[in-house]
Each structure stands twice: as C-alpha cells, then as structure tokens.
Computed example of a mutant assay.
Amino acid sequence: MTLQLSPTELQDIQQVLQDFAPAQPAIATLQQHDGNLETSLEDLVAAEAGAAVYGDERKTLRQAFVRNLRREICGDDSFRARVEEYNKNPGKAALLTGLIVYLIDLVTLPINPAIATIVVLWVLKLGIRTFCDYTEPVEGQED
C-alpha cells in the first residue's frame, strides 16, 4: 500500500503548518516525493541516521524505525486522544503542531520535528487504529 497525500491534502497541510518552522523540511520532502509519506519518511530517517543508505537498506531502516515507533505510540492513550481531537477539528494549526510536539516528547527514539511531522501525517491519513494494525509485525517476524 502506498500512502500518499493528494495535492489538495498537501496544500492544506502547507497552509496549516505555514507558521511552524520545524515542519518545513517535512513539507519540502513531501513536495519532492509528490506527497508519498513512506518515501518521505525513508529520506528523513536515512538523513537523520547520517549515513549513505540505499535501496533495500532504506526500506529496512524505515521498517525498523516504524516498528520501534509503533511500540511507543500505539499503546499511548493520550496520543490516541490527541489524534481523535485533531480529527474532530481538522485544520487547527495548534492541534496539529501540538500533536507533532507531543510525539517528539513521547518517544524515546531520536526523532526530529520533520520526521515527527511525517509520522503524524501518516497516522492522520490512515487513522490511529489502522496505523497500529498496518505496522504490526507479521507473526514470526523478529521484533
């Protein structure tokens, strides 16, 4: 499944986050990849790792990052409540930036605001329950 923001969704996010400077690298990466959330996340995670990562290594790095991130956010009721609150009031910049900042504070992984922005948009695109189910490791897969 390719997770992609439509041009309209990307434009809406740009407008909502226009005054939130930490999200601008995420928006630029999303624009570069035509709204593709997974490819944008791969780019940002690889850049954060500080190493040249190519091909399958990029996917493996993203998968490991998402697997670890999933452990932390899917069981956090406060994160879930914040996602649901934003979904009731989409387009509210304060709620969206608050969700991004909360994610940065929540996880023990090193996560910069651009990565957190992509993750939050991914969760919002799928829905928190679907994100948690979609990223759940396949039985027999090492966790």
Rank of each mutant, 00 (worst) to 15 (best):
P110G: 14
G91I: 07
T135D: 13
E139Q: 05
I111C: 08
V16L: 02
A116K: 02
I111D: 09
L5P: 00
Q63M: 10
R71V: 12
Q11V: 02
P25V: 14
L121H: 01
R58G: 07
V123L: 05
R70L: 13
E142R: 06
I73R: 02
L41N: 03
L109A: 13
C132N: 10
A47V: 13
G75Y: 01
D12H: 01
Y86M: 11
I111G: 08
A23R: 02
G55T: 03
E38R: 05
Q31P: 04
E142N: 06
L121S: 04
V16T: 03
A94C: 02
I118M: 12
A26V: 09
E42G: 05
A51F: 13
G127V: 09
I128F: 12
P113Q: 05
R129Y: 00
T108G: 12
A94F: 04
F131P: 10
T117L: 10
V66H: 04
S78D: 14
D12Y: 00
E85L: 14
A28I: 10
A52K: 13
I128M: 09
H33N: 15
A21S: 08
E142V: 11
C132M: 07
N112V: 12
V119K: 09
L106N: 10
G75C: 01
E48I: 10
V101M: 11
V120L: 11
A81N: 11
Y86K: 13
I104N: 10
F20K: 03
G35M: 00
R129D: 09
V66S: 06
E57S: 09
F131A: 10
E9Q: 08
W122T: 15
E85P: 02
D133T: 11
R82K: 14
Q18F: 04
K88T: 05
G98S: 07
A52Q: 15
L5S: 00
A21R: 11
Q32H: 12
A23W: 00
A46E: 10
R67E: 14
P113T: 04
D34S: 14
L30C: 08
E85Y: 01
I128C: 07
F20Q: 05
N87P: 02
P7T: 08
E57G: 13
R82V: 06
L126H: 01
G75D: 07
C132Y: 06
L30Y: 04
L37Q: 06
L37G: 06
K88N: 07
R70M: 09
G127F: 07
T60N: 12
V138H: 03
E38Y: 06
F131I: 09
E139V: 03
R71P: 08
A116H: 06
S6H: 00
Q11M: 01
P113D: 03
I111E: 13
I73L: 15
V53K: 03
F20G: 04
D105Q: 14
S40A: 15
A116Q: 08
T8A: 02
T2R: 03
L106P: 14
T108P: 10
T117M: 11
V16C: 01
T60V: 05
H33R: 14
V107D: 13
A93F: 02
E48T: 15
F20E: 02
A26E: 07
G55P: 06
T8D: 04
V123C: 03
V119S: 12
V107P: 15
T8E: 05
L17S: 00
A52E: 11
F20Y: 13
